[in-house]
Structure formats: C-alpha cells, structure tokens
Design a binder for these strands. Structure first.
Lengths: 202, 202
DNA sequence: ATTGAATGCGAATACATATTCGCATTATGG
DNA sequence: CCATAATGCGAATATGTATTCGCATTCAAT
C-alpha cells in the first residue's frame, strides 16, 4: 500500500475500493475489471485509487488478503464433529466447498478460474493449512486404523482434484451433471483414497 | 476464416501464423500473445493476418483445431494393451498426460491454465470422447468384475481431477512434490474409485 | 508478355486502459 | 479561526493493442 489512510473517510474509501474490486470481478469478470470501473463502482475518482494502491495488482492483493481473512473466519466457525467418520468429514468439506463457490455471486469461482495470474496465494494457503492440519489431527487420532503415508502428497492431490472438479462443475451452465452426484462421487473417491473403507457404516 | 487461401504461399502463411500463435503462447503466455507479435513471429505483416483470420480469436480457434487433430492422432497411436489391468491402464493414461503437459514447451499447460477464456473446447472434446469410449469398452468387457454405475459422472470427476492436479503439479516450479509421487497417488486414487466397490451404500 | 485477380504490406486509425499531476476540497491540531 | 497536512479529483498522458485501408507486389491464366 502506497500510503497509510489516516482519516476516517480515507479508510472507508480503501474499503470501498476493495469491495468495488470484488463487485467488478463478479459483474465483469477478472478481465473486465479495470481501474476506471473500480473507481466508478466505489464512487471515487481514479486518482484517489492511486493514493493508497500503488497499482491495480495491489488492489487484487488487498482483496485476496481480505478474503483470506473471511475464509479463515468461516472455517473456524465450521463445527468439527469429534466423532465424525471420514466419510462425513470429507462430505462436509466438499459441501462447504460448493457453498463457497456458489456464494458471493461466484466471486470465488472467478478467482479460482484465474488463479494462475492473480496474487491469490494467501487464500489458498489458508485453505491448504486448515485442511492439512485437519487431516493431520484426524489421522494421528486414528493412526492404528488408517496408517497414511505421505500426507503432503495425498492432500495435494485431494485438494486440487476436489477444487477444480467443483469449479468445472459449477462453471458448466448446462446442468448435465447434478451437483449432488458430483459431490457424492468426489466424496467416495477421496474417502476411498484416504481411508480405504467406503461408506458411512462401519 | 475470412477468406480461403488459394495459392501455395498463402496456405503456407496461414500455417505459419497458426504455428506462430503457438510459439507466442509458449514464449509470452496467452496474455502476451498479441497480433503484432504473432505476425512478426510468423515473418508476416499484421495486415496479412487479417486476410485470412477475421480476428485474433479465430487464430486461437484454428490453433485449437490443429491441436485437436494432433492429439487425436497421438491418442490413436497409443498402444492399447488388451490384457492390461485397470491400474496399468490408468497409470499409462496419467503418464501420457504428464508427457503432454511437458511437451511442446508447455503449450498445453498454458492453454489449460486459460481454459475458461479460450475456444479450446474441441481439444477437450477429443480427449473426453476418447477416454469415455476407452472406459466404456473396458467396463463392458469386465462387467462382472467391475460393475460401474453412472460412468458419465465418474469420468467427469476422474478427468478433471487428474487434469488439473497435473497442471498444478507441473506449474509449481518448486519441486516440492515429485511428479512420480503425484502420478502414483493419482493412479491409486482413481483405480480405487473406478475399480473398487460400487459407490454409495444407500 | 499482359492483365486481372490474389496476395502482401505496414503506416494509420480507433479504442481501451493504467497511471500521473496540478489543483480544489476537507480535515485536524493549535 | 488559521495553517498545514491530508485527501480527493478527473482531465491529461503514456502506452499498448486490435483492426483497417490504400497501395505495392506477386501469381496464374491466356
């Protein structure tokens, strides 16, 4: 950030700009998100934008930071059933993922689609860390029953498979495949891969 | 295409332009692939470009068409071991996928990264159809051993999971995870999902 | 060889976008 | 209330890119 906003109105402007960035992404896509549009959408002049953000990318970074914060908070609120079996755990995570992709008018969807050219690493890190930790806890607890080697590799595969399959599913406007079917399929695939057993009954 | 190239030199120019498009994508990424650059790279003037392509997108489409053709040919050449078990089949397909992503100096990698804003549907279709057919044949033959429900859903999940996990793996320059580990993990996950017990126990 | 069509050219046009700068307005501390 | 700093403005600038157009060159058929 180029300059620290000291007064109240400038701090509100910074917030408005970040929110406007998100709204522009939702309405016009990442490519259609231009600085004039962001400024207009925030009800602010272009010049003011550059008072606090060194360039357009800084805006995206700020948005990423904010979203990472939001996501972290949402994750903490998720109830973590102590006694849940693997199938329910994974199923819950996937349902949570679909909710995220459909939330915010598709903001996350568009961001993930453009992951390779956006400074979105922070959001990804938050998710990655959370689920890696979750998995670590779970598998330490059930070590006898589920001896899992190379957790890193498995989580990498599982996370990316899930995320992008969901993105593709939500992206295809034609409802050829139902979200529920895909969610169920993903869950089964992952549970089979991580735990061995299939299905909720044991 | 705006006009049919009738003479030999013009046909060669059209080819050169398509090749130049591919090379530009490799060297400068999809975003850095501009019409002046393509023309220069093809050793041709910008004006000539517009003789045969109505706009830049038409060039990408033509490239997609050509690649679809190439991929289809490569797939047909792939030896299809009659007696292979599921693990070898899937493993072979995944190894083939990694080869593709590393081939052509990362052309396919960059194209898939930008899948959502490119007219690449044809290439995807070729792959989709091929593997769906492959799966159908395999599972018809082994019906007794591997009763598989909803092949469509499963192939959707498997294809997207594999593709994007591979893309992410190849994209991360830091070799934190070895390609071989990821390939092996993916193979195990997919084999478990396709070949193991039938899905949801309701 | 001649001629008309096809091809090729690249400067010029039109547009869009990122970023800056000098000036006007507003807040804050004394 | 004043003085100074902070803030806000938006026309102007700089850059880049897609696309066109009038003219030059080459081809192919007679």
């Amino acid at each position: 950030m180029r300059k620290q906003p000291r007064q109240r109105r400038s701090r509100r402007m910074v917030d408005a700009l970040i929110d406007a960035t998100a709204q522009c992404i939702v309405e016009h896509g990442v490519d259609g998100t231009t600085t004039p549009r962001i400024a207009e959408c925030a009800g602010v002049s272009v010049g003011s934008l550059y008072q606090y953000f060194s360039d357009k990318d800084a805006l995206f970074e700020a948005l990423g930071e904010k979203l990472a914060h939001d996501v972290a908070r949402a994750l903490k609120r998720l109830p973590l059933p102590e006694s849940a079996n693997l199938h329910d755990l994974v199923g819950g995570a996937i349902r949570f993922g679909f909710e995220m992709l459909n939330a915010r008018e598709g903001l996350f969807l568009e961001l993930i689609r453009n992951w390779h050219r956006l400074p979105t690493a922070r959001v990804a890190d938050v998710l990655q860390d959370h689920f890696l930790e979750l998995a670590r806890l779970y598998f330490i607890k059930h070590h006898q029953r589920y001896p899992i080697a190379d957790l890193q590799v498995r989580m990498f595969i599982v996370a990316n498979s899930t995320l992008f399959t969901m993105v593709r599913q939500v992206s295809q406007d034609e409802g050829l495949l139902r979200q529920e079917e895909v969610a169920e399929g993903l869950t089964n695939m992952i549970v089979g891969y991580l735990g061995g057993e299939t299905g909720p009954s044991r």
